[in-house]
Design a protein around this nucleic acid. Structure first.
Lengths: 238, 238
DNA sequence: CGATTGGTTGAGCCCATTCAACGAATGTGG
DNA sequence: CCACATTCGTTGAATGGGCTCAACCAATCG
């Protein structure tokens, strides 16, 4: 039996409450399960989808870690997000029926695929599901608002502090340590997401380290003083 | 009869195809009409909603021009978008049932309010409407992706060129001149949206003017060389 | 092993910011 | 109606934060 062909089963999924079926009743989840597509493994470095691919399915990250990259004609790329378990991939593609960014696994990962056609039909008979989905889309909009704020009006130090705290919170929400984390992405990835160059990210991490806010060893990061770090998210920290 | 109490009637609306009911059949639009809420006038400078307001309705801009502003605790604000007729306001609020930004009219405007509860019910019995709405939400996500790209990896000149071309295109799409436009927002607003200071925006406009790309007189902007301007959206313009 | 990728650190530079002065347009109250 | 304040925009000069260029190191891999 091939992992690629495993059926998704939300009903018995440990991250059910973090994911699409959050808040649904057992019967509703059962119904959702019947319409779930396959489960799919994506190895580190592989593309889940690429710009231009026709849009058929949404994906829920079951395990692992992804980045989504928006490509600009002249080669420049912007990372628009990092997705961890329970989070949805592919929402941007609904509009044009084609993916408009690349989704790349940053570690060996697995996703649950949901045929969007079937999902929409299901939404028609399950108001709860549709409502949850509307909220998920809206949440993504809010998240991006916050990134716009970050990119548009914060200095480098604040950007990185925000990034680290956000990452820690998302780990905590998944019952993982919000103190010690292994970054799944390179300095360049972080820089791309934050609108900074990799050297700047590296320097900032060193700075935070020197100041006793973090312990940084490569991609292992330990938050030593969360309060102080949290203060760095905003300008005046005299 | 008070304009504030006018019933919205999509069926006879001139911008129907730019707005929420785009692509719906006459019967469907009729059904939508029955569930539309009031039409509402918003004077220049007034708030359509504020951060923290409970979310009850989506708004479709019927006429006029809005900005949405995300406030940061320390007083800084980021403009997350400008909305013109046919565009939706309030999508960010679905997630938390509360508005998370301010919406401010930049000129005397009117909006059509749609009770979101009723709208969701309607979506349950009108697959087409729900599908359109999913696409609208997805489009907003794509738009914000592009802003992230702009803020994260473009230089000031490219940002402004992108902004102007985008504005021109949206005017064209509404059968308004895409050559001569009156900006509805201040230099500071533009700067906030583009992650620049107002002085920088002013200097860039002067530069484009001097180079013969634009004719700028206060808020009147005439695009003299659209091709050249379009080239400025991307780095290499030797 | 050499080759490649990822990360750190330094030195100099440049683009956008800051600070500042000034002008134009609009509105307000006496 | 004028005097005055306020808001909006332009332009100049100096500053600085993050970038560029570059060297170097560590880890991984075929």
């Amino acid at each position: 039996m091939n992992l690629h062909d495993l059926k998704s089963v939300c009903g018995s999924c440990t991250i059910r409450e973090l994911c699409l079926p959050a808040g649904l009743s057992d019967e509703e989840v059962h119904l959702l399960d019947q319409h779930m597509d396959h489960r799919q493994v994506v190895s580190k470095g592989d593309y889940l989808y690429r710009v231009g691919d026709p849009f058929r399915s949404l994906f829920a990250v079951s395990s692992g870690f992804f980045k989504t990259v928006l490509l600009h004609e002249d080669g420049r790329g912007q990372i628009t997000g990092f997705q961890m378990m329970g989070e949805l991939l592919g929402l941007e593609a609904i509009h044009s029926d084609h993916h408009v960014c690349d989704a790349i696994a940053l570690e060996d990962s697995a996703v649950c695929a949901i045929s969007f056609d079937q999902f929409e039909q299901l939404g028609q008979i399950m108001a709860n599901l549709q409502h949850r989905f509307n909220k998920d889309l809206s949440r993504e909009i809010v998240r991006e608002h916050n990134v716009m704020m970050l990119l548009g009006s914060m200095r480098s130090e604040e950007r990185l502090a925000n990034f680290l705290i956000d990452l820690a919170d998302r780990h905590a929400h998944r019952h993982q340590s919000s103190v010690e984390m292994t970054l799944r992405m390179t300095r360049e990835d972080i820089g791309s997401y934050l609108g900074l160059k990799l050297e700047t990210v590296s320097r900032l991490l060193s700075r935070f380290h020197d100041e006793g806010l973090l312990e940084v060893r490569g991609r292992r990061v330990k938050i030593l003083d969360r309060n102080a770090l949290a203060l760095r998210r905003t300008e005046t920290h005299n």
